[in-house]
Amino acid sequence: MALLEIENLHAEVGGKEILRGINLIVNPGEVHAIMGPNGSGKSTLAGVLAGREAYSITEGAVRFKGKDLLDLEPEERAGEGVFLAFQYPVELPGVNNQYFLRSALNSVRKYRGQEPLDGVEFLKLVREKLNILHIDRELMTRPVNHGFSGGEKKRNEIFQMAVLEPQLAILDETDSGLDIDALRVVADGVNALRSPERGFVVITHYQRLLDYIVPDFVHVLSQGRIVQSGGKELALELEAKGYGWLETDAAKPELVTA
């Protein structure tokens, strides 16, 4: 069964149609990259999948492991195994990172019918994941994302992903603003989770990240539609040509067939 099936998805915000008929299938084990210019609807798609309230779905369907994803609350989607690494991770002053993460983990465990982890087990897990991502333990004592640098925020997203072990991870421009070392750390975190059961949707602006997280498929989103799909070579092509051709609709990249 496909992990994620998006069928003719239309979504609007404030009466403005942003997604205009998206079709996408992600099978277990696959990594899909979604590229496209600013404002093309990448974050909207990610938000719709994670359950952000602001959007109204006007047409189409999304199934996750065969279930109607759009019918679930955001926390139920997380329980089912959907994870979104936010383009702009939200600051939660006054919410301790460790308390937050333990609540999150035990909530999804409860949803999945697993026993909650006690303090000791949790800390052991956390320590292990922190090491993989080269994150200082001190970060756990701070309020979630509050006062974090841009890079720390992005790494914290991947750290949360590593702890929650989702089946489908959507990374929304996790690479933007990262230097090459931080980028490697993020990519290592993702690659460590890659498995035949998991799927990834990696939204990015730049081809650079895809050198480290090598995708199986690359899609180009423009004005709310996937206008082009291909293999990883498409990313290189886009890097060379830019997105100018989308506006003119003239010379599409040649490597088009998936």
Partner: peptide, 26 residues
């Protein structure tokens, strides 16, 4: 947006609300 962030990590809505209220009072 804070509420959504917490929910997107699996924390049920009512609990997310408590946590944000707690954070305000912290």
């Amino acid at each position: 947006e804070q509420q959504f962030y917490l929910q997107s990590r699996g924390i049920p809505k009512a609990e997310a609300r408590n946590l944000l209220i707690y954070a305000f009072a912290s």
